[in-house]
Design a protein around this nucleic acid. Structure first.
Lengths: 334, 334
DNA sequence: TATGTGTGAGACAACGTTGGCTCAGTCGTG
DNA sequence: CACGACTGAGCCAACGTTGTCTCACACATA
């Protein structure tokens, strides 16, 4: 900047004025400044500018377990699109579902003076974040509520979604439903189980607890659990899986084994419409999740005051028809 | 920091020393400082620290069309994991495949003094970036080479991948292959076409240009193009699609129509293994793409000098067996 | 001519750090 | 006992900006 000022024969302050389009600059001088900065390839230093006067850095942090997971990527994309409108950049960071790593990342981002944080929290305790929030770093939690901390959150209707999904299974005549979930210590899982139970209760039936498998954490384990359930008596005629990875595992088993059990999963399964077998998914719009989270965050960043707010996003049950399968089978028969 | 110094009864410089673990600080004073900063909830300001002495900001920018796309998300994840080891944060930004937006984002990130940029370039001209690079902002291009600029790039073996994929189709007896591509102005597309042509040439045959459809930019258009090709004479017995979105469109058509044409696509298709119908994909590891790109970028950031380097990542052809389909069919028959 | 009113631009300080220098005090050595 | 080496901590300046104040100059008015 000093160099530009020297080359243009003006003071640095005038250069600053030209850059910030302050009206009270003579056109001739402004022209000289612009030419000089062009010639030197000068790029104003945003870092210094935001330091001066402690202004916002125009940066928010988005913390997810891992961006390569489609759901988190979509949340990030939604948040990014909202941030763009505010000329704010997004720092994406991985927590790896590790509570210590998460806190370390949050600390680091606070040091970098992000204007706010959008967090898909891991399981750990978040009480220690109170201090940061009070020190003026707004945080909004997405997909899961923080534990030990009252803070803004944007959640999914886990309970209602499972309830209506399972109710649909019941309505089509299934009374024995195998339920495969990850650890119940995950709030989402316990809510989804509660929803399933509510659907049974509402139908005047009760969920057979022998058909529930918990702490199932990957597709292979899900397949094994389903295989075992199929052998049990009374055998289930349908499965409900707590997330899409588990559903995919079960799907694979059903196909490998040639079983025709109904399958319902929480979360969408990419390209499920291309699978020839019926699969139902309890879906929600993750992009909207990220967008609403970011909008809420920006309200806080703008200094709006309100008591911690929880937004719950509705879910929808999609029956991937599986008609492709029939048509495909028809095609093969033809 | 001033507050901490006052509370601890030392100078700010001593606080700075404690924070940076400078050895020459008395334990008693250090303890007082630590206690004071704890009590005040003090977080050092990284922004100011990096401003002073023009040190690196510990931030890189990663530019992709849209993070919600699985491939880009995986590239971002790979780059993020490498950056983490360097205590560097990643700013993710969208270019929306728009050249002007891309240049604007790059300019913005340079103003924010990122240490470097990892870019999945859009189609536009990149010559203007020479200046930024010369001014010390290293850039590495990923997946596609920049146009009008010699710079480090990490690319996919589009030519070799298509060639071996198409060769495999030819080897299994297909001589009439419908080829569906997006705009040939995209370097990736023209290379993939060239690879297909080379496979034909090597087999002593030539690619029937009537069976090539270009400028197909979404699944629906791909399905339409395939439908039209199926009606043409001589009709193709197989399809090769230039990217996964086009392949998915064709897949849908084949199933809806009950056709059993072979299908080969560039890029992986999520959950293709769950589809009962054979699909072959020319795949590569996007995570590695991001990792290699980031590693190369950090070599530049570390000031290493070498002439612009191009790394080409190998591809692999995966035949998603479609055996699920047979087993599924068997299951249904049973 | 003296005064008032703008207008445009420079000087200076400050944002929160840290590098470099200085300096006071302690200790060891000849 | 004098001197030098060492240790620990403070002072000052600077990083690249911008807010605030000041000031010079031009022009209009009484």
């Amino acid at each position: 900047m000093t160099d530009v000022a020297r080359l243009a024969g003006v003071s640095v302050k005038t250069v600053s004025r030209v850059i910030n389009n302050v009206a009270t600059v003579d056109d001739v001088l402004a022209g000289r400044v612009r030419e000089a900065s062009e010639r030197l390839g000068y790029r104003p230093n945003q870092v210094a500018a935001s330091l001066r006067a402690g202004r916002a850095t125009g940066t928010i942090g988005v913390l997810v377990k891992d961006v390569s997971n489609a759901m988190y990527a979509t949340i990030v994309a939604g948040a990014t699109s909202v941030a763009e409108d505010r000329k704010t950049r997004v720092i994406t960071a991985h927590t790896g579902e590790n509570s210590d790593a998460e806190l370390a990342v949050i600390d680091d981002l606070c040091r970098r003076r992000v204007d706010g944080l959008l967090i898909v929290p891991s399981g750990g305790d978040h009480a220690s974040l109170r201090q940061e929030i009070d020190h003026g770093v707004p945080m909004v939690f997405v997909d899961r509520a923080p534990s030990g901390l009252e803070a803004d959150s944007v959640l999914i209707d886990n309970y209602g979604g499972s309830k209506s999904g399972v109710a649909r299974l019941i309505a089509s005549g299934h009374s024995k439903i195998g339920i495969i979930l990850d650890k119940l210590s995950q709030q989402t899982m316990s809510e989804r189980l509660a929803g399933a139970q509510a659907a049974f209760a509402e139908a005047g039936m009760s969920l057979d607890s022998d058909l529930i498998r918990t702490s199932v954490s990957n597709p292979a384990e899900a397949a094994a659990a389903a295989a075992e359930l199929i052998q049990s008596r009374p055998a289930p005629t349908a499965f409900f899986c707590g997330n899409n990875r588990l559903a995919v595992g079960v799907l694979e088993l059903l196909w490998d084994g040639g079983y025709d059990h109904a399958l319902l999963g929480f979360d969408d399964i990419p390209h499920a419409r291309l699978m020839p077998r019926p699969v139902s998914c309890i879906v929600y719009d993750s992009r909207v999740l990220g967008m609403i989270g970011a909008k809420l965050l920006f309200r806080r960043i703008d200094g709006e005051e309100f008591s911690p707010k929880t937004v719950t996003l509705p879910t929808q049950v999609i029956d991937y028809r599986g008609t492709h399968g029939d048509q495909y089978a028809a095609g093969r028969r033809a």
